[in-house]
Design a protein around this nucleic acid. Structure first.
Lengths: 138, 138
DNA sequence: CTCGGTATGCTAAAAAAATAGCATGAAACC
DNA sequence: GGTTTCATGCTATTTTTTTAGCATACCGAG
């Protein structure tokens, strides 16, 4: 019996110890929130065989990145680390790699890449967020 | 003669076609801006042999992600895609994967993860950025 | 000049990742 | 009840990645 999902302890920087496909699959699952093997397969542009996808899911679970629930006849996989936490962590990575640690520069890039599709409302809400951060700070 | 750096055309999503080590090395070079083989080796936590690092650099150049300049006796490698462009692209990726496309949510996470170390000034400047984006929009 | 350090070019091998195939079982369908 | 469908468990194989080793060239110190 080796179905016990013996999750190894995870590294501080999740995603660093993932192979190419594994990362690709984790992204899909984070984006979807939860997904079965066939969900993942459908979402993959260059999907290999169904078998291959399942193998990756199994390994990701062994590595402790995923867990699964039984949903009727099939498995539905979910991340073990919440989207929030993983997102923040990933954000910190980018911050360091591309923006020299400057959150300001990062926001600038974010706004810059948006331009066309940022509504007045959305900007308002962002401004409010920053304002609140300011209050919390002091 | 096969030293010609025959860069293949790159995919829209740079980083998607990189292996684990390759990604790791690209990150280092983006962070440093430019780096020699030994710079990269020093920066790697779990560095393999110097030879291995050089091999990766060569392959990354073949794939078109890096280029090199001769700096005295050694090669110095730089990304072919500017940090700005690559950063924006990576940001868009995270946006999609973890924040459901909501830039607002992303800024929230960014501020949240900052809390302790965000200065008043930095917040001011961010607010100004948003304000300017607002003006550009209309 | 010769030696030690550091670089590159090239080649080969070990390790990990990625893929595919087949047997089996349960539910849905006709 | 038979059969089609879709799922899993397990195993085998191919391909890619990752690593290391050695010969050679250059440069500056002793």
């Amino acid at each position: 019996m080796r179905l016990k999902t013996e999750a190894k302890p995870m590294s501080k920087n999740p995603g660093q110890d993932l192979s190419r496909r594994e990362r690709q699959i984790m992204e899909i699952i984070y984006r979807l929130g939860r997904a079965s093997a066939s969900d993942v397969e459908k979402d993959l542009d260059d999907a290999p065989s169904y078998s291959a996808v399942r193998a990756h899911l199994r390994i990701l679970e062994e590595k402790g990145h995923l867990t699964h629930e039984q949903d009727g006849p099939r498995y539905v996989f979910l991340p073990t680390v919440s989207s929030d936490v993983a997102g923040e962590s990933a954000l910190r990575g980018l911050l360091r790699t591309f923006f020299g640690g400057s959150r300001e520069q990062m926001v600038a890039a974010l706004l810059d890449s948006a331009q066309r599709d940022l509504s007045e409302d959305e900007l308002d809400r962002m401004a409010k967020l920053i304002d609140e951060a300011r209050k919390d700070g002091r």
